[in-house]
């Protein structure tokens, strides 16, 4: 399928979840290994970053879309769901309401991510907030299981679990036959535009 062996598969993944659960903090910790709560503002629309990572001896390029959590942006952000291979669905371990909304996010993903399967990992964020946890681990895992997702708890502040969360997601993409075959992705696009642009393949390669 790929003539050029140096061509790295590109995986479009998303960060979704309620407002202020810490999606951008996880995103920045992962991409830049950087955390500064003092400079975090609410994400407007969608932010984009790209990063090459190696999982199971395979290099992949992650195109990560960090979406705004507020309801009003939903019609915009959901347009980015199309052709996504995976999503981290983030909630705040210290705010129960953000956990209760997880089924809604699963539904959104299923509705808008076109007909292909999407690999998902439920991410409990702000693990470092000692004493304010209101969602326990087994509860979180049960919710993830029920929706066929992986589960991990992270702290963008300390960095704990952040890389693992993305690795888990990539692993789940690779384990999904509808998404991944013979070391390559079956569908890929970075864009919110039509799938037909994707077939040229080389368009998004490089740096």
């Amino acid at each position: 399928m790929r003539a050029d062996t140096h061509d790295i598969p590109t995986l479009k993944v998303l960060l979704v979840g309620n407002s202020n659960v810490g999606k951008t903090a996880i995103f920045e910790r992962f991409v830049d290994d950087f955390y500064d709560p003092e400079t975090t503002t609410a994400t407007i629309g969608v932010d984009f970053r790209s990063k090459i990572v190696e999982v199971r001896d395979t290099k992949v390029k992650l195109n990560i879309w960090d979406t705004a959590g507020q309801e009003r942006f939903r019609s915009l952000t959901s347009s980015y769901f199309r052709n996504a291979l995976g999503a981290l669905i983030v909630f705040d371990l210290s705010v129960y309401e953000t956990f209760e909304q997880l089924p809604l996010w699963f539904r959104e993903l299923r509705t808008y991510s076109s007909d292909q399967q999407v690999a998902t990992v439920v991410v409990g964020a702000k693990l470092d907030k000692v004493g304010s946890r209101v969602v326990n681990r087994s509860e979180g895992m049960a919710m993830a299981d029920k929706n066929g997702a992986g589960y991990i708890e992270v702290s963008a502040k300390t960095g704990v679990g952040v890389v693992e969360a993305f690795e888990m997601l990539i692993g789940r993409i690779m384990d999904t036959p509808a998404l991944w075959k013979d070391g390559d992705v079956l569908a890929r696009t970075d864009s919110v535009v039509a799938v037909d642009q994707v077939e040229e393949g080389t368009r998004y390669c490089g740096c």
């Binding site: 407007i44 629309g45 915009l76 864009s191 919110v192 642009q197």
Partner: peptide, 21 residues
């Protein structure tokens, strides 16, 4: 266009926050 970049991907914020970001 050739690169697959859509205006909404970068200019949504420009409009929503009037370039304040």
């Amino acid at each position: 266009e050739h690169q697959g970049v859509e205006f909404i991907q970068f200019s949504f914020r420009w409009m929503n926050c009037l370039l304040m970001r």
